[in-house]
Design a protein around this nucleic acid. Structure first.
Lengths: 249, 249
DNA sequence: GCTGACATGATTGTTAACAATTTTGCATGC
DNA sequence: GCATGCAAAATTGTTAACAATCATGTCAGC
């Protein structure tokens, strides 16, 4: 199965097969990234260096370097002498990430709205077509990827590489949050919201665009179930609704 | 001599001597950070792993880990098989960093302005007093530190840890840019601009505060000499004003 | 005199072994 | 039965040695 991230990169560059030529270090980073965002590695799970080293056929040193990168993106937690654990973003953290995105992306769409050109509008429309396409095909996976890419596209159009890179990390973090807190029946109705965003951008009014982006991000956040986290492996008490007792008395 | 960063941390926590209890890894990171921001390590300078390892009395592995951190903050450049080099932010990068800060900090002051309380105003005023103090004492070094801390304080008051951390990195990057491009006679008149910012914040009007912050950041940028970078060690052509020829003919 | 191959030295990249720490399992005592 | 302490296993942290790569200096050839 293709990975979320390599697929996303392929969407950017337009060549999917080429992504296999990534340097091994990046390969491992992306593989772990995918596994985390796919919840194949569940939040809270311990990541043992040697196991991963064997799995990828590299030395522990490389795994440790990869850990540093992932920890910097807040996707794993590094505890001295204890090891690495997949991040379990708290509800408060989740809210802060969305709040941060609002602050950043408000500024982004303000810039994009006031600097809109026909070519850029066409770029956005092309992307929205792909989103609709994926949605009508029922390709939920691609829809999720493209949804994130949409926000990244706007950041790129704002013309600031610093913001773009930062937002990329924030979007990854958001993906982990969504994976952890999404409601049982996933709702990817965001593509219609993206349409509305384009309209707002085309109005050329920065305030209108910023308001629309805020509404959109709040909507994503509010679709999550930020009250009760999906229980992790270790949270037996909430799984069974009671504390453990002996089975046969 | 105290380091810029540990001094800054001390300002935050209120206890300077305690900063010596940092774990060795953080110690090394901060020492290198300081050296870069102080220009004891000049932009473009090669950082040899073994030399640094000997200097700090640690193994190369630790130095490599520190390199990853610094590279993530864009303070050094990591070139495969070639090594680590102190970053030489280009003029375009510098402009982008200031632009990114404008986007972020506009949002920050909007939030702070609309959520101002007496206590927060007092916090800011206390900080400004310290800035003025340093300035009147002629303590240029402390003035620079406190100037950066001012922006960080506003980010903290905005109540978003994600933004605060990101801005912290951006401020470090700005410090390197200033160190690289500052005009011959350093102008730290920014403390009066900070006063104006406080006034704008007290107005409670987000638009006013954002405009003031934009003006302030633009002013800092415009005080730099972003046309001609201060020549690095290797730029002999610009040092001597001509290309090398044989000395005795 | 200049260019390019080649050998040498310096530096980074990688691996494996060792040390320190934490976790786990078990026995002991209350 | 439960807590406490101890020993063993697992895991992380660190170091040193080796391999691969790159930079530098030398020398032959034009």
């Amino acid at each position: 199965m293709e990975s979320i991230v390599t697929m996303a990169k392929a969407e950017q560059t337009g060549s999917y097969k080429g992504s296999e030529k990534l340097r091994p270090e990046e390969m491992i980073y992306h593989e772990m990234l995918d596994a985390i965002l796919d919840r194949r590695l569940e939040p809270g799970m311990k990541l043992v260096e040697e196991d991963l080293a064997k799995t990828f056929g590299v030395s522990r040193a490389r795994i440790r370097a990869t850990f540093l990168q992932l920890a910097h993106d807040k996707l794993i937690n590094l505890v001295p002498n204890r090891g690495a654990f997949v991040s379990e973003p708290t509800i408060d953290e989740a809210i802060e990430v969305f709040s941060a995105r609002r602050m950043i992306e408000d500024g982004v769409v303000r810039k994009v709205a006031t600097n809109m050109t026909d070519e850029r509008a066409a770029q956005i429309k092309t992307h929205l077509d792909r989103e609709h396409d994926a949605h009508h095909r029922g390709d939920h996976r691609a829809a999720i990827i493209l949804s994130g890419e949409f926000h990244l596209l706007l950041a790129r159009l704002s013309g600031n590489l610093v913001i773009e890179e930062f937002l990329e990390r924030l979007i990854l973090r958001t993906s982990l949050i969504i994976a952890m807190y999404e409601s049982p029946q996933p709702v990817d109705c965001s593509h219609t919201e993206h349409d509305q965003l384009l309209n707002a951008l085309l109005s050329g009014d920065g305030d209108v665009a910023a308001a629309e982006m805020s509404r959109h991000l709040d909507a994503i956040r509010d679709r999550l179930q930020l009250q009760r986290p999906k229980p992790g492996k270790t949270d037996f008490a909430s799984i069974f609704g009671r504390m453990p007792t002996s089975e046969a008395s």
